[in-house]
Write a protein that binds this DNA or RNA. Structure first.
Lengths: 338, 338
DNA sequence: ATGAAAGCGCTAACAC
DNA sequence: GTGTTAGCGCTTTCAT
């Protein structure tokens, strides 16, 4: 293995001078710098990052920690990969590699959330939809773990969060349906409680309330993010005495089930029933009729999370405690005026 | 920072004994082991992986290297993430973290394919659809880079490849169409030449030839993997003097474009035209009519690649030089007999 | 502008 | 079973 020592020997200098050249220290004569760079090239020398980390306590990697459960996490394709792309982009541009670590149960209630940091494999961590306990929050604060959380509620002023405005976006969407004349609007919630789903439902309720529209509890159904639960939701809502004219689905995945079942039942969308989704998955652009939905700017969110984390690591300005992205409306053929 | 030294001090032993306990060395009295484990727990000690790598030259990470171009790579959602899931699964189970590194041009023709390995950030590398030059292959061999390649042709007996049987699968698919009575079958190729697409086209040709069916060059169209190019393909093929009764698409993405344009033009699928895809993307299950297509076992392929790489790292049996997975047929409503 | 010395936290190799 | 010694390859600190 080629080491600095070897490079130094050939250049007739000490290892320190080689180290300076590698780290861009200006206190090196231009001539020696050139010579050293040439020798590095010739020998195909690469600095050993383990040795570097050990003596400088900088790693040059950031860890992505994502849960692996409840249809969120790696399985949840577009959400995860959108964020990943953003993080990876910003990371590479600023000289950080990306470690990914999805979590599975280890002992009892023991998620090794911080392992990558404690083991000094990562300088800092980005958590995707982590649902922290009090104890874990305390750990972050006490051990001063540099981190950024994506897609969660605020947990503490000193822990930055990047999120999107789910509540506001859902409100906008429902407002739009109301403007189209809908007064009987169902909501497809999730029995698996997540922060985003609570926010979306809250936004739905706000729109309903502010427009003085009646909401019949019969129009509320709890699915589980699966397509199949969307189909069941439609069956159920159709069996109600009073039927909604529009169904607002908490996620695209469930909306797809509604659309499929509607087709099976011969119910015309949007003529007989308007349907909306949320997330703008690739499937939502392909289904027929295409889905009116909301598109979270995932790549931007990921990029921003990485930006914040790296700023912390490089001790730039203190991090914002919360950044929220707008969620644009994406029109589709699944809604119409009534 | 808590170190072995601190643990050793409190336990009244030397650091070596602590090191032995951490590494599961059996030559430690059960009593002292228990004591040390308790202290480790109490102090919340975590071994420093940088120090560990430096002295043992084992890193405990494997790198995934993926290109970022031509609609392959991170952008290509389902393919990449399927493999990633498999790799990550096997990696975690065997104690390796996953580094991902998508590649962008650096200098001129200079892709830093091996950076993670040279910098000792990863013990070995998994390449997703890398398209190596001769020089790069030589580097792998000369520097003895432990690696596994996914989704490529064989390049050398000592470099293991995990792939799926694209040629054979496409042949099966076309055979099926022929059995349904189709004799005029178009092919939607890609102008962007990739190994997999060449294989698929070769399989198509084999089926045509072995069944003594005519193939009119007018029925061949070169797209670019985009949905839009699928739509254009349909326009073009319909303008031919002799029209095919079935269009075999090299990828689902292009097949989606064919289906969309057919709907716009009022062409009924499958009654007027049968269409097939390849890849079994989530969209292919949602489009209406659903697409008859082929499903690569991506998670298994990823898992296997990681397995092979880790076996190499742990010096188990010599790696297979090539493993090929079958690609099952997934039926859909987009084809019918004629 | 350059070098020498010390040490980051750990493990390999050898002693006892 | 346990300890001692000697590094791993680099950066930090202090000299010069």
């Amino acid at each position: 293995m080629i080491t600095q020592k070897e490079v130094a020997k050939r250049a007739g200098v000490s290892v320190m001078t080689v180290s300076r050249v590698i780290n861009g220290n200006p206190n090196v004569k231009e001539e020696t710098r050139k010579k050293i760079l040439r020798i590095i090239e010739e020998l195909d020398y690469h600095p050993n990052s383990a040795a570097r980390s050990l003596s400088s306590s900088k790693i040059g990697s950031i860890g992505i920690v994502a849960p692996l459960a409840n249809n969120i996490g790696l399985e949840s394709n577009p959400y995860f990969i959108g964020l990943l792309r953003g993080i990876e982009w910003e990371g590479i541009n600023r000289g950080f590699d990306i470690l990914i670590s999805t979590q599975r149960r280890h002992g009892e209630n023991d998620f090794p959330f911080f392992r990558l940091f404690f083991e000094k494999k990562a300088d800092g961590l980005i958590f995707l939809s982590a649902n922290f306990t009090e104890k874990e929050i305390k750990t972050i604060q006490e051990k001063k773990i540099p981190c950024c959380i994506v897609g969660e509620k605020q947990i503490s002023a000193d822990i930055p969060v990047v999120d999107s405005k789910n509540r506001e976006a859902m409100k906008t969407l429902v407002q739009h349906l109301i403007e189209l004349g809908h007064k009987k609007i169902g909501f497809l919630h999730s029995a698996i409680r997540t922060y985003h789903m609570e926010e979306r439902f809250a936004g739905f309720q706000e729109a309903i309330r502010e427009n003085n529209i009646d909401f019949d509890p019969d129009w509320l159904y709890y699915g589980d993010f699966t397509e199949e639960s969307g189909a069941q939701a439609l069956d159920t809502l159709l069996s109600r005495k009073s039927r909604p004219t529009a169904i607002v689905c908490g996620t695209d995945s469930m909306a797809l089930g509604v659309i499929r079942r509607a087709r099976e039942l011969g119910i015309k969308i949007p003529e007989d029933l308007s349907v909306t989704g949320f997330d703008c998955t690739p499937e939502s652009r392909v289904v027929h009729p295409s889905l009116a939905t909301m598109a979270q700017p995932l790549v931007d969110m990921g990029r921003t999370a990485a930006e914040i984390l790296i700023d912390i690591l490089e001790k730039r300005d203190p991090p914002p405690s919360r950044i929220e992205f707008d969620i644009p409306f994406v029109d589709g053929e699944s809604i119409t005026e009534i």
